[in-house]
Write a protein that binds this DNA or RNA. Structure first.
Length: 224
DNA sequence: AGGCCGATCCTCT
DNA sequence: GAGGATCGGCCTA
């Protein structure tokens, strides 16, 4: 079990994103340890990119909110959204450049009971209940106790950190690529193929596997 | 299963 | 002053 090194993150987010699939996000809050496998991510490109990504928080340059994105790679960028939720990104690219990867879903592995308490979901042994814990960018933050005040700017490359990403040697298998979720349709970047999922995972956000198979034929799946 | 809606407040213009 | 990288509840079918 080794932390993913900083060099891994010092690359463009569209390269880092699919390689993050299968890695583990580990969170320690007090005595509780909660961990899940990353099964769904999205890349957001920095303003230095040839065609600017207008959906990215960094695209108008540094602000008070997004300054972590312009710092060194391998740090957490946590922001609040809709007044009640948080989302977590991993900062990529060398210092000064602002690409990042949004974590959108995990497969819960360790500390499931603690996650269930935080989410207010009763574990009845069903896949549905387990999925509900971490199948969404803000759901996974709630489940792992991730919030802006405590976690924004933390270094994820130290296994002893309160928040870290580690590699357990898992073979990620096939990766599915689609457009990103929740992007304003007026945005020029709305169709860019920057969402990456583990094709076989039951823990991706949104419709279940059966429905996704049907959706492949008609919808926004760019490649499998 | 899919669509609509309100909650709720931070961030940037 | 406007809008958002969301979620959960409620509706129809």
């Amino acid at each position: 079990m080794v932390a993913v090194p900083r060099l891994f993150y010092e690359r463009p987010p569209e390269v880092v994103a699919p390689e993050l699939l299968g890695k583990l996000l580990v969170s320690r809050v007090g005595r509780a340890v909660m961990a899940g496998r990353i099964v769904e991510v999205e890349a957001y490109l920095g303003p230095h990119h040839a065609t600017p990504d207008a959906a990215a928080h960094s695209h108008r340059g540094p602000t008070a909110r997004n300054r972590v994105l312009f710092g060194p790679a391998g740090h957490a960028y946590v922001y609040s959204i809709y007044g009640q939720y948080f989302c977590m990104n991993v900062n990529c690219e060398p210092e000064g450049q602002a690409g990042c990867v949004l974590l959108r879903a995990l497969e819960p592995l360790d500390g499931v009971e603690a996650m269930a308490r935080r989410r207010g979901i009763a574990m009845d042994g069903s896949l549905k209940a387990l999925r509900g814990l971490t199948s969404g960018p803000s759901r996974l933050c709630m489940a792992l106790g991730i919030e802006r005040a405590a976690h924004n700017g933390l270094d994820l490359t130290d296994v002893d950190s309160r928040l870290a990403i580690v590699d357990d040697g898992f073979d990620r298998g096939d990766v599915q690529v689609t457009a990103r979720i929740g992007i304003n349709p007026a945005n020029a970047a709305v169709d860019w193929p920057l969402r990456f999922c583990l094709a076989e995972s039951e823990f991706v956000s949104g419709p279940r596997l059966g429905a996704r198979v049907a959706a492949r034929r008609s919808k926004n799946v760019v490649a499998i």
